[in-house]
Design a protein around this nucleic acid. Structure first.
Lengths: 110, 110
DNA sequence: TTTGTATATTGCAATATTACGATGAATGTA
DNA sequence: TACATTCATCGTAATATTGCAATATACAAA
């Protein structure tokens, strides 16, 4: 493997990286924010809201779905997406666990 | 512009995406974790700790430095890196602000 | 000055991501 | 049945990321 030697790292490290990657694009942040605001929305809404093509939005939605951040349910011809509450908490805890590890470095700081 | 139409998104969205991207690689997570544990460390330690080439580590350190997560100070011939406390708080708050926006979706869920 | 040590940078190959038009699949409606 | 609507997927072009060898830079010691 040339790129991303995942085997060198443990599960927590890979999970944190995977989750972060899902948030690592402004369009996906915008999608998540929109879902947070509306509680649920359909692909079409997002195409109108953001200035991206339908195929692009669909691709971003899939990436968010792949890591479990959002979930979708078919609603007639359209698909309604929303935040996955359990996964949301899980990710929040995972990040908090990382961020809480910082203890003011006192005199050891550089 | 073909890729990442940043102009479509606001500052918060782009900032969150940029910060997330910095965390979006297991090697960079590992580096940050190592810094959290040791409070400060030098490039050479990391080359031994992780199984990556010196050039690769140096590159990852630069990406973390570019978004301000870490900072380095020259210490003789080597460079000591550590977490940037202010930026760390800033990022923590930025993420909390996102994650706190979720309110249990009740019956609106999908 | 020369040598050694530690880190940064450059250049390149392999791979991944982003974006979108075109097309396909599924469902609702005339 | 025929057609429209909505979303997913495929194929492809442009760009970004990852990883490393080679090289450059900076500094300390001999």
């Amino acid at each position: 493997m040339r790129v991303t030697k995942k085997n060198l790292f443990d599960n927590v490290q890979n999970e944190l990286a995977t989750v972060s990657k899902a948030f690592a694009h402004p369009a996906r942040i915008a999608i998540v924010q929109h879902l947070l605001k509306t509680n649920a929305c359909i692909n079409g809404d997002l195409v109108a809201e953001l200035g991206l093509a339908q195929a692009t939005i669909s691709q971003h939605l899939r990436e968010l779905k792949d890591v479990g951040i959002i979930q979708g349910s078919i609603e007639g011809t359209s698909v309604s997406y929303c935040i996955n509450p359990l996964r949301w908490e899980e990710i929040r805890n995972m990040l908090n666990q990382l961020f809480d590890q910082f203890t003011s470095c006192g005199d050891n700081c550089c």
